[in-house]
Structure formats: structure tokens, C-alpha cells
Design a binder for these strands. Structure first.
Lengths: 192, 192
DNA sequence: GATAATTCTTGACTTTAGTTAAGAACTGAA
DNA sequence: TTCAGTTCTTAACTAAAGTCAAGAATTATC
């Protein structure tokens, strides 16, 4: 399972065996059953999560509604966003499936940075990459209609369509479940 | 003018005089008149821009339309997004006002990282901060109506309303200029 | 200061999303 | 297998955004 982590890291930076060992020694691998709430909106936590197996959902409550804003599948990580400096989190995080995760916190990060300065390089590279991806996604989102956004999702993250309830997908696309249902109907009509 | 840069940096990390000098020695301060296109969609460039004075706009062409996706005012920087590894840029960048900018490229970054490792820490902190801000903005955007998004903009970046043509703001909000015009009308009606 | 170009507003009309409500389809647990 | 709870679809209606076109207001240029 930890091989998945190393594979992912080595997209960015080749690491030594000593560095691998340092990571494993932190004892950060954890499993959770489906439906586990890892973090509740309003709670303070410094944990960060990286998905080795399974699917996470990040969401928040607004006007009594649950708004789903992001999913994290294998090889994706919940950045410190929800877990900053002991501030109460704006978001909740829950597992949508049984999950194997890497759970770390900033003090572990500090230890790693000190012992292996290259981890800081790694984190910067990962951050820069994430900024880039997020911005492209946001820009596309802005300049698309709900229908185009759904088609785009079908293209880019087809797994989500299978793994996630539609009302959560709808929220993720910034529309109502009813609207998503109609969009799907519209698309099948013209596609067959 | 360079004081502005140091002020901004020291939100994240206090730097020494030697480090300040290293920055200034890179000779990175540049001025551009209003309307200068710094980067054209499709061009390759490794430059990064940080705004000391003035306003930048990032945009791209889609269906023959110019889609404005972001503005960068004083103290904001165009991250390497448009300027990755010699890939043709997905975006254009232009000045909306006369600008004083810091123009740097990744080779300068590499020099700095080597001579002053703390710059890598700085960049990571800045990146993490940007990820956080961008995600919060995106999440709000997703779960808001166009009208709410405009009200939010009024609240968070009132300067933009003054400094940017409305049709570019509309695009930035993901709507048509006509729609923005009607939203403004609606709001003044109920507000006075 | 007159003219041209750009930007903004308005109106009429079309399309799509939001809302509310009902019921169908599916899922999971006893 | 049945029942309850959840999720998805449909329908009727309302509200808002997109589109197209015209003209008003503003800004830039000579």
C-alpha cells in the first residue's frame, strides 16, 4: 500500500530509501469504514489526508443545505485547507467508501522538513502543481454552462459519476439535483 | 517601491538584509504602460509577475469570446500557471493600468533557492496560502447565484468594480454583460 | 469640441435553472 | 421478502440567465 505513496511522490521527485523509511516511520497509514466523518465543520484539527484507497468528500453547510465542493480519490490529498493553524474548519470531510489514508499533521511535516530538506521542495512542487490544476478547473467552470460542466466531468473524472450519489455531484457542479437529472435526460435524448 | 515587496514577503517570513539584497540584485523591477500584453495565449514564456502598482488581467479565448478569469492588483502575483515548463500558455495576460511589476523566471527562482534555502520555505508558504484562498473562493462561487457572486465581489474586492470594465467583470463572474447590467439594476432598486 | 469607438443599458424573446411536490426506483436492514 | 429510508425522476410553475438587436452613455482621439 505504501508503494502507492512512493509512486505518487516520484511523479515529482525521486526519493532515497532513507527518505522512504523516514516517511514510513511516522506511522501514518490508517483505515476508516464508509461514512466516517473525519472532520466536522467548526472543529479544529491539523490533520491532512492523502487517499491511498477509497474516496473522500469535502462539504460545508449553507442555508441548511449541504454543499459538496470536492472529492478526493486515490492519489489525491486534502491540502491543509481545512486544517489551518487551529482555526475552526469551514468544511467537513467524510469517507464515501471504505478508505485507506495517510493521516499526517503539520508537526510531522516540520520534522520531515528538518531531517530531509528535499521534502520542502516536494511540497512546493506539489503545491504549485495543485494551484495550476485548481485554477484551470476554476477557469473552465466559470466559462461553462452547467451542461458543459457535466460533460466535462464525464470526460475528466468518469469514476466519480459511478461512485458518488447524484445529489452530491449536482452540488459539486453548482446546480440542483433536479437540474442535473434534466441535463442527463437531455443528453441521452440527443446522444442516441 | 521595493519596500512593497519586502512588506509582502514579511507577511509570511522575516527576511535578512542579505536576502533583501539578493532579491534586488536580480534586477527584476519593470514598468509597463496601460494595455500592454505581457503574454499571449499560445506563447511560451517562463516569466512570473508580481504586481507592485497597477492591475493585471488574465484571460483566454473560447468560442471567439474573451473570457476574463482573474485580476491581479497590488500585492498579488501571477503564479507560474501560465508559464509552465515551456508549454504554450493557455492564457493571455495584459495590463489594465500602468503597472510596476516584478518580473522573474524560474531560473532566478532556482538561484535564490540555492543561495537562500529559506526562499523555498517562503514559496511553499505562499503557495499553500494561495491554494487555501483559491479553494475558498471557488467553493463560494460554486454554491452562489450570479447575484450573490456580484454582491460578494462588491464586498471583497470593491476596487475592481471601479477599475475594471463591466463586461470583463461579467466574464469574471461567469455571466454575460447584459446579465450583470440587470443584476445591478435589480440591486439598486431594492437598496434605495 | 466634434467624431469615432467602446462600453453599458434596455427590451423582447428563448432557454434553462430553481422551487415545490409527488411518486418511482433503488438500497439496506430486519 | 418486506419495509423504511434514501436517492432519482418527473411535472408544473416561477425566476433568472442567454441571445439578439438597438440605442444611450461614456471615453478616447484628433
Amino acid at each position: 500500500m505504501q508503494e502507492k505513496l512512493f509512486e505518487w511522490i516520484e511523479q515529482y521527485l525521486i526519493i532515497t530509501d532513507a527518505e522512504k523509511k523516514a516517511l514510513v516511520d511516522l506511522d501514518i497509514f490508517r483505515s476508516y469504514p464508509k461514512g466516517t466523518v473525519l472532520l466536522n465543520q467548526g472543529e479544529r484539527s491539523r490533520n491532512e489526508y492523502f487517499v491511498l484507497q477509497g474516496l473522500l468528500r469535502r462539504y460545508f453547510e449553507k442555508d441548511g443545505e449541504e454543499k459538496t465542493v470536492e472529492f478526493y480519490a486515490e492519489g489525491e490529498g486534502v491540502t491543509p485547507i481545512c486544517t489551518v493553524n487551529g482555526e475552526p474548519s469551514d468544511y467537513s470531510i467524510a469517507t464515501l467508501e471504505e478508505c485507506t489514508l495517510i493521516v499526517s499533521n503539520s508537526s510531522m511535516g516540520a520534522i520531515l522538513y528538518e531531517r530531509f530538506p528535499r521534502f520542502e521542495t516536494l511540497c512546493r512542487l506539489v503545491s504549485d502543481d495543485l494551484i495550476l490544476k485548481t485554477q484551470v478547473i476554476f477557469d473552465n467552470f466559470k466559462s461553462s454552462t452547467p451542461e458543459e460542466r457535466y460533460i466535462h466531468l464525464l470526460d475528466k473524472r468518469p469514476d466519480l459519476i459511478q461512485r458518488v450519489p447524484q445529489y452530491q455531484l449536482a452540488s459539486f457542479l453548482g446546480i440542483t439535483p433536479e437540474s442535473l437529472s434534466r441535463i442527463r435526460k437531455r443528453l441521452t435524448k440527443y446522444h442516441e
